[in-house]
Design a protein around this nucleic acid. Structure first.
Lengths: 255, 255
DNA sequence: CCATCTTTGTGCACGCGTTCACAAAGACAT
DNA sequence: ATGTCTTTGTGAACGCGTGCACAAAGATGG
């Protein structure tokens, strides 16, 4: 999981478990695909396979939304698409600002999955004055100075941070002060936010590290008595990691 | 959380809980920062604050690695950096291939957090012949035809998929057939992989949808008796989501 | 060498999430 | 109308993860 919620430790919002909420977009995607193929109904078994989950889990998830299925038949695809969309709040328009228009910010601006889900890129913001006015994904980049004005004028409540780690907290503070209450953070830093603000983070490096852990374990299992690795007693308190210092500055462009 | 493991439902690898493994990179980042400031030791309380977690959780996490702390003092920063790096397998070199060099693929290729953690971009691969030879982040893009050869020659075991959804499964199959056993998937699709292959996924759109859910809930709480929303009995089985069809094709360039 | 003080390591309890397994519900055929 | 067959919805059990709270360990000072 590239993500993790910050704050609000176990708030089961309106009776729908957090784990279920996290899977709803998955179901929605599978259902949308079925809808495009004009499939009228789908069983929990089929939909679960398409979404890559257990069918019992899917049924329990849907049971939190209500009884939308028909026993002996399955679920009405169109109806379910509507219900999940509504539950997730995708039937309304969500203006989003993206701060930090480097490679990653540009990729996000171009991402097609946003517009089709009710998300509208209200503005692209970067700290580099040279970027100002330059169009990215058809939208002119604006300078950081405009941040507060944009957020207030467009009523933006969701912000995406794609800046280097060093700038992230500062950008976050300004976003929150201007009225943003949900933040998607791509910078490799822990963000401190006041109560009531949701932060979700996506960290590319962390995902790879988790994969490396499992990969190493696989390799270790093959050579069961792995020689050379894990010396019995490593000299304590004198190690210097030959790993170059990096400060976790991502290569995305400065914001 | 932008991620989720596929397959291997609850395999507690070598006694270290999955949840702990997912936090180790977080600790490592905080420790690296301390190391650069030449801080010799750190208490669980301080480190937990820096990593954004509970101190009891941190201590329990570390207890799975062994007893590396000193009571009354705390943890030796350098030593802990080494231990976690080793545990995660970051003391060795991990060649990685990135398939799909669009905006996102380019952002990944430029990402500084990779090289500093033992990950080396072995190759950039794209299906567009026009991209071939063009350097991205100093590395020339190679055509998909070369995929198998690259993986075998460099002994690549980790692949990153940043292609459109339509191409992802096919790319995945080829990666796996060529010997890749860990995949980081950015395409909005469920990947089917054989036993023994780890898949982690990062889905930008899903993260935003989860934020939208909470955002909607916040708005609903303010206007407690929210009028107009959630009509008591919506006409069943006749809804057409006015949401445009998209098939979840990301805007990243074709691979 | 002893007392005090700090901080770790962990036993324990609790709650969330997952999965099984089955009763209830409805469609459909006869 | 009745029986059969499919599939949902959920009660219950289980396991993992979290957080509390405290005993044990060791540092430090006298």
């Amino acid at each position: 999981m590239a993500t993790g919620r910050t704050h609000r430790p176990a708030t089961r919002s309106r009776g729908i478990p957090e784990a279920t909420v996290a899977r709803l977009p998955l179901y929605l995607r599978a259902l949308t695909a079925l809808s495009e193929r004009s499939v009228p109904t789908v069983s929990s078994e089929e939909l679960a396979a398409a979404a890559g989950v257990n069918s019992a889990k899917l049924r329990k998830d849907f049971s939190y939304l209500g009884s939308y299925g028909t026993r002996g038949v399955g679920y009405d695809v169109e109806y379910l698409v509507y219900q999940i969309s509504r539950e997730l709040g995708l039937t309304q328009d969500w203006p989003v600002v993206i701060v930090g228009i480097g490679n990653l910010g540009a990729a996000l601006a171009n991402y097609g999955g946003f517009a089709s889900r009710g998300f509208r890129v209200a503005a692209l913001i970067d700290a580099d004055p040279g970027m100002a006015g330059k169009p990215v994904a058809g939208i002119p980049v604006q300078h950081t100075d405009e941040l507060e004005k944009i957020i207030q004028d467009d009523g933006v409540s969701i912000g995406v941070i794609a800046t280097p780690a060093g700038a992230a907290q500062q950008v976050c503070d300004r976003l929150v002060a201007a009225g943003v209450t949900s933040i998607l953070n791509f910078a490799p830093t822990v963000l401190n936010v006041p109560e009531g603000v949701d932060v979700r983070k996506v960290d590319l490096s962390i995902e790879l590290q988790i994969l490396a852990f499992h990969e190493q374990r696989k390799a270790g299992e093959e050579a069961a008595a792995d020689p050379g690795v894990a010396p019995p007693a490593v000299a304590r308190k004198q190690h210097s990691t030959d790993q170059g210092p990096d400060g976790d500055v991502p290569a995305v462009m400065p914001a």
